[in-house]
Design a protein around this nucleic acid. Structure first.
Length: 506
DNA sequence: CGAATTTGACCGGCGC
DNA sequence: GCGCCGGTCAAATTCG
């Protein structure tokens, strides 16, 4: 099902920086080339200082960044000008093959340095946005609930630190890059997971609250974000008391002809039932990417429209996610956090969240939230097309808000990868501020799992991969016994080692 | 032959 | 208490 990932091409700095460069004559257009370039870079990290050569020549040889990608960086290009004369440092005649290679090497270094800067910027903006999202949600929740329950949950939501109780993935998210800035995606997910366990939803009923303690060790422990292997005994009691409910669900509706939407994770079917009121059977899957991963999902076609596939996720992954699985993990977890933090949910939450989301152009599809279901469930409806900010009616007991999910074409059952669609930004949708293109790109990235995967792969090559093993990373992670389409978990990427849900299509 | 899927049995929650 | 229903288990079957 998984295809080769030509999207690597999107990460080629060639594509960003010199679309029609003549360097192609000397640089292979092979898909592996970026890795090769990264290799060069990783061996030459020493030049973080500006290179006067390039600053001198930059403006004349500059090529356009991809449409509107104003990262705010000085993305000067790299010499398409291998032919430049008067090299300062390389005061050599670039006539010999060696010299040519050296010049090429220099160029590649610069290119990779800029690419890295750009990626860091994107990552940082991504983190910032994540933080803003959490802040806003936390604030909304707090305003809503400060007269009833628990600020702790809210505060925790806003607290980027890994919370004490949880964390199976603390180790895996320890990458310092994720710590800087505001809330890292990884931590975000952590906090969200944590958050989800702090809020009581009355309608969740006894099934969902407290105390599924005995279940924790059993197969019914799904939904628990804790992994038995890392559970700190000293914290267990505290954790137990902090787990008011753990079965919040995120349901995703998308049009798909395929029987199953590939979402970057590996699933194993363990059951199928005929559900009442629906002629289509409901299939039950559990995540098999890591032993004991509690995440499960249900897949069922809509009775009214069989082209609509409803995938309901439950639980938190207890293992690093492949990049392809993280984009939606972000989105759905944000939705879940919204659900949970706003628990008793209301129009206030809607208004607040909507107001907050407005500047985010990629928040286009709709979500409905229902706390009246056996489990608090948020439904992200991706079948609405791409009508941004379109609010559809929700049942009276539900509330709706723009979902972080973007209705990307992949969700419509298209097997072919298409470049991430950067949302058009009508000014009317922009709210009061004009988001930078970085945000736009970030939006596109977060809305497109494949692109995220490719980006993360590139980042990992630059940042995460040890020098000795730059390039292709053998899947040596113990927790992922099964290789994931060549996309290993990436410690340095904006991936979310733990998420509430994952969703994407391949 | 091992892994994945299928499918009927089983269990627990819930409403009547 | 009984039956319905959702969810899970596990043996049987299929698949690669």
């Amino acid at each position: 099902m998984d295809k080769p990932r030509p999207e690597f091409a999107f990460l080629r700095s060639d594509d960003f920086l010199r679309p029609n460069s003549s360097v192609h004559e000397t640089v292979s257009t092979d898909q592996k080339q970026p890795i090769k370039e990264m290799d060069f870079f990783s061996r030459n990290n020493q030049h973080n200082q500006p290179n006067e050569q390039e600053s001198n020549r930059g403006s004349s040889t500059r090529t356009e960044a991809p449409a509107g990608v104003n990262t705010g960086l000085n993305l000067l290009s790299l010499n398409t000008g291998i032919q430049r004369s008067g090299n300062d440092n390389l005061n050599i005649q670039p006539k010999t093959e060696f010299d040519t290679l050296q010049v090429e090497l220099e160029r590649v270094r610069d290119e990779n340095r800029k690419l890295r800067i750009m990626l860091e910027q994107i990552t940082k903006n991504y983190s910032d946005l994540q933080g803003q999202l959490l802040m806003a949600m936390g604030e909304a929740a707090r305003l809503k609930k400060d007269d009833t329950t628990c600020t702790p949950g809210t505060r925790q939501l806003m607290d980027p630190r890994p919370s004490g109780g949880l964390d199976i993935n603390e180790a895996s998210v320890s990458d310092e890059k994720n710590q800087e800035g505001s809330v890292s995606p990884a931590n975000t997910m952590e906090v969200m997971s944590n958050e989800s366990e702090h809020h009581k939803i009355p309608s969740a009923g006894k099934k969902t609250c407290f105390g599924d303690g005995p279940d924790q060790g059993s197969t019914h422990s799904w939904g628990s974000p804790k992994s038995p292997t890392v559970l700190d005994p000293s914290k267990s009691e505290e954790q137990a008391s902090e787990v008011p409910f753990r079965k919040a669900r995120v349901s995703v509706r998308a049009r798909s002809e395929a029987p199953l939407i590939s979402d970057g994770c590996q699933w194993r079917k363990y059951g199928q039932k005929m559900a009442k009121g629906n002629p289509c059977p409901r299939a039950y899957y559990r995540c098999t990417m890591a032993a004991g991963c509690p995440v499960r999902k249900q897949v069922q076609r809509c009775a009214e429209d069989k082209t609509i596939l409803t995938t309901t996720y439950e639980g938190n992954h207890n293992h690093p996610l492949p990049p392809a699985a993280t984009a939606m993990a972000n989105s759905t977890s944000a939705a879940a956090a919204m659900l949970l933090s706003g628990s008793n949910t209301s129009k206030d939450a809607l208004v607040n969240s909507a107001g907050f989301f407005h500047p985010m152009p990629y928040l286009s599809t709709m979500a409905s939230l229902s706390a009246s279901a056996p489990f608090p469930t948020i439904t992200l409806d991706l079948t609405q097309g791409t009508n941004p900010m379109h609010f559809h009616r929700a049942p009276p007991s539900s509330t709706t808000f723009p979902s972080p999910l973007h209705g990307c074409p992949q969700l419509i059952g298209q097997p072919l990868y298409a470049p991430p669609k950067i949302p058009v930004l009508p000014s009317a949708q922009m709210g009061h501020r004009h988001p930078s293109m970085v945000e736009t790109v970030t939006a596109a990235i977060t809305s497109d799992p494949n692109f995220t995967a490719a980006l993360a792969a590139a980042i990992s090559t630059i940042i995460g991969a040890p020098r000795s093993s730059y390039g292709n990373t053998p899947n040596s992670h113990g927790e992922n016994s099964k290789p994931f389409s060549g996309m290993p978990a990436l410690p340095g990427s904006p991936q979310l080692p733990q998420s509430c849900t994952t969703f994407s299509t391949n």
